[in-house]
């Protein structure tokens, strides 16, 4: 392992946290499935019955690519014949921009073999996938989440309904095209729903800068230096600075105000700190 590349840290706070937004992480090396005895047998059995598009071992875990219409049959085969009886996780990955579709993955665990298999399939945009809810009960919620977050329709699902976002939500938040701070309907969601669209003007847009201080807003911000009572209107007549008072000045016995002159640092001194 080499050391991390050195980057100057002068304005590290000011720069955006993620500089390279389209960084593609390097892939781990892919091994052939016959490098592992158990996986090799599994792949041979799978290939006898189904069309397997690709199979490799990455980070000690078998990954197989299948056709999306085979998912139910293959997962049933994995569960009943190859002892992968545990669907740990399933969801999708957005590849709309690159390949115009989604990659759906199923993470399977065999407690007998102590092995995990990742079954992946590619689903073109607009196509639907068959539910695996009847094989694994946990797929019920996972598929609902997939529908909620990506808008992927699941066939024959018993209760395909949004699971995390509200039912009247617009858009699918885990799509890469979805803005992090929400589209227009998301930004006004609670205002529209509770008060109606007319209230938008009264309530105003969301304040996304959490460090914002409005010096004239005496309802929500107290003022340092010259305090005024809450709700005072100071737009027109802003009070001048009140002098800072120290209780030591009034004659507290033996205690004196430490009157240390403040030093203004130069640019270089500030950086060296």
């Amino acid at each position: 392992m080499s050391m991390r590349e050195y980057k100057p840290k002068d304005n590290v706070q000011a720069r955006a946290y993620y500089t390279d937004r389209f960084y593609v992480a390097p892939q781990l090396s892919k091994l052939s499935p016959n490098s592992d005895e158990i996986y090799n047998l599994d792949v041979i059995k799978l290939k006898e019955n189904f069309e397997i598009l690709d199979a490799y071992i990455q980070k000690d875990e078998l990954v197989i690519y299948i056709n999306s219409f085979d998912n139910l049959k293959i997962l049933k085969f994995l569960r009943d014949d190859l002892t992968y009886g545990f669907l740990m996780e399933m969801s999708a990955v957005d590849f709309l921009a690159k390949r115009d579709g989604f990659e759906i993955f199923y993470e399977m665990l065999s407690q007998v073999k102590r092995k995990r298999i990742r079954v992946k399939t590619f689903l073109k945009k607009g196509l639907t996938i068959e539910t695996v809810e009847n094989l694994f009960r946990s797929a019920n919620f996972a598929e609902r989440e997939m529908f909620d977050m990506f808008g992927i329709q699941v066939n024959n699902h018993s209760f395909l309904k949004r699971i995390m976002m509200p039912d009247d939500w617009h858009g699918n938040p885990l799509l890469k095209t979805y803005p992090l701070q929400g589209d227009e309907s998301a930004q006004w969601y609670e205002v529209d729903k509770i008060f109606g669209k007319d209230a938008r003007e009264i309530i105003g847009p969301e304040i996304r800068d959490s460090a914002r201080v409005d010096r004239y807003d005496t309802e929500r911000f107290s003022r340092l230096g010259h305090e005024v009572s809450k709700g005072t209107d100071i737009y027109k007549s802003e009070p001048s600075n009140t002098a800072v008072q120290f209780q030591e000045k009034g004659g507290v016995f033996l205690i004196k105000n430490l009157n240390k002159p403040q030093k203004i640092l130069t640019e270089k001194e500030r950086r060296d700190r």
């Binding site: 938040p173 979805y178 992090l180 701070q181 929400g182 996304r208 959490s210």
Partner: peptide
């Protein structure tokens, strides 16, 4: 108070 660190859509 402000949404805090959750400067997100939801």
């Amino acid at each position: 108070n402000t949404g805090g660190m959750f400067n997100t859509y939801s």
